[in-house]
Design a protein around this nucleic acid. Structure first.
Lengths: 221, 221
DNA sequence: GCCGTGCTGACAATTCGCTGACAGCGCCCG
DNA sequence: CGGGCGCTGTCAGCGAATTGTCAGCACGGC
């Protein structure tokens, strides 16, 4: 887990390095606003600790430039100024947290952990099963990278197969999942949906095990 | 955007309600730890403001229970205690931010906004999603650079979609966040708002995935 | 080769979402 | 205090996408 420390005071920088290092971060430091801007813009950090008083470019400006470029890594601001107005400025500029100097190293580490935990809290929503890609956020489907328009029912069928990860799913179970078991469809309804899906997705995605059920092909079966 | 305020001091609760309401949240309040635990565990909030001194169950315990149950909504802790050790405790318990009393209402709102932004994985104040530009500071909207006048309700709808980051948002969730689920609207109300918005914004901004919900088009889809 | 299971294309019904009109409500301004 | 205006929920009708059903066909297993 990489972290960038932007701090011009050599002594504080060393302390931060040590504390974050002990907390499991791989720390890089940088003492200059312009270097910071470049690094933050081109490298990939799990966390940035940013001091506001910097040579060459002010910390807030650096932060605003990152955000303007769509960089959204968590940034923890350090500053000697403690007026609440300054805090508001920092947070409105896109900071994720704010710590006034002087601070306890323990608190900084605690906040850093909280930030990283939160930014990582957005779990993977894209599943790849064989040739199939299923994006549960956008409710969209693609085969070999080519997007395919599927209906709600078709999507739910695919999603259920995908989440069963390669298992052969018996028709009864699928029917029960797609419709409540309260209202009964003809058994053929399921086959019709599968047929439509196969026409859209092409061959080699949905497989049939005669007498048992359906499964997704290529999922390390 | 729903927010829950957990605070036993009636006066402070009222102030928080007013300030967050003005910032665009639909606010619910609750004065008791056990109620708070239940609400936070079963309902879906974009933000929770949590006071530590509570009857029936301590705020930290409530928070820990939420986290233990996998609830990861942003939580902003309020407390009278200002020792740094307490802060560390709160943050380690899973708080996302910490504000000592007394505090400025402006700062609370700024932090609340920052938390919500961050929980959506975005750091910027100005969001560009496809043809849409949404300025969360000025509550203004533009399409392809042309400003568009939208009403408060319309804005909240757009903002929620924008913060959902291109995800397809089901109508039920939108209804729940636009209005509290306490007073029920006909399902058609949502469609009416969307229709009005589309007339203002033009085509290609709000998309529909039949059977699932609405989403913002062009967000790297 | 025979039988049963599963597949396919067409068709029709139904559900879902969109739209325009309208009415109630609150708010601002005179 | 009254009138007007903008906002928003409700209603009913419309159009289209979706999906269940049916009848016939293909194919695999024994």
């Amino acid at each position: 887990m990489r972290a960038l420390v932007v701090e011009d005071d050599q002594r504080i920088a060393t302390d931060l390095d040590a504390a974050l290092g002990a907390a499991g971060f791989v720390v890089e430091t940088c003492a200059d606003g312009e270097d910071a801007w470049f690094l933050g813009d081109t490298e990939d950090y799990a966390l940035i600790v940013l001091d506001l008083g910097l040579p060459a470019m002010d910390g807030l400006s650096v932060l605003k430039r990152w955000r303007a470029n769509g960089r959204n890594m968590p940034v923890l601001i350090l500053t000697a100024r403690s007026a609440w107005m300054e805090r508001v400025e920092g947070i409105e500029a896109g900071a994720d947290d704010y710590l006034p100097k002087p601070f306890r190293m323990e608190e900084l580490v605690a906040r850093a952990r909280a930030l990283v935990r939160r930014s990582a809290g957005q779990g993977a929503v894209v599943h790849d099963i064989g040739a199939l890609t299923l994006d549960t956020n956008r409710m969209s489907v693609a085969v070999r990278g080519v997007p395919v328009r599927v209906t709600a029912l078709e999507y739910r069928l695919l999603a259920y197969l995908a989440l069963s990860n390669g298992r052969v799913v018996p028709p009864g179970e699928l029917l029960e999942h797609l419709y409540g078991d309260d209202d009964a469809r003809e058994a053929n309804a399921l086959e019709a949906v599968v047929a439509r899906l196969r026409r859209k997705l092409g061959a080699g995605v949905i497989g049939t095990r005669r007498g048992f059920g359906y499964f997704l092909e290529g999922s390390a079966a």
